[in-house]
Amino acid sequence: MDWEWISSNTGEIGGLLGDHIYLAIVPIVAGLVVALVVGALGVRFPRLYPPIVALSSTFYTIPSLALFVIMPGLISTQILDPINVIIALTIYSASLLVRNVMDGLRATSPEVRQSALSMGYTPIRQLWEIDLPIAMPLVFAGLRVATVANISMVSVGALIGVGGLGELFTQGFQRRFYTPLLVGLVLSVLLALLADALLVLLQRWLTPWARLVR
């Protein structure tokens, strides 16, 4: 472990860490928005449910590296553009989250549905004020998985030149110098743990009732 290398490269490490966070978080937020819209449609129109499930499973089986590489061809971007990684990870996040969103939106019990309807909720308002809050625990379960997965997958992007902390891995391998590799590893793990803890706290704050149910 070369401590001197670390202290003389803190600026670069910090920059890569910032990139890593950016590359992981933007797809999570975008993927959540996509999953909420697609998931709400899948629940509202039950005929869409099976194709959505099939499509999301298919997306998830595509290896991340393959998706990163074909992205520029699909959306005609520069090969080194970070948008390739962001869009690819958005697809993964959305695919993973859409199942949780749909299961969550269907978790509202028949009695709750019937009483919401009978008290004069309109469908949109019921989705927003009743179904969505009740779906939150399942959505958060998906978010935690997707966030940790994203944080690890961002590193793969280093192979196409956009990888946040993953670039420390490629550097380390190419120069057979293991300090950057270790630094990248430790920071990735810490980042994943921190993000997960923050999500847990956010969920407790947003859904204080969820721990009481069953």
Partner: peptide, 8 residues
Amino acid sequence: QHAGLFPH
């Protein structure tokens, strides 16, 4: 029946 209260 079962009240159908909003759990959240």
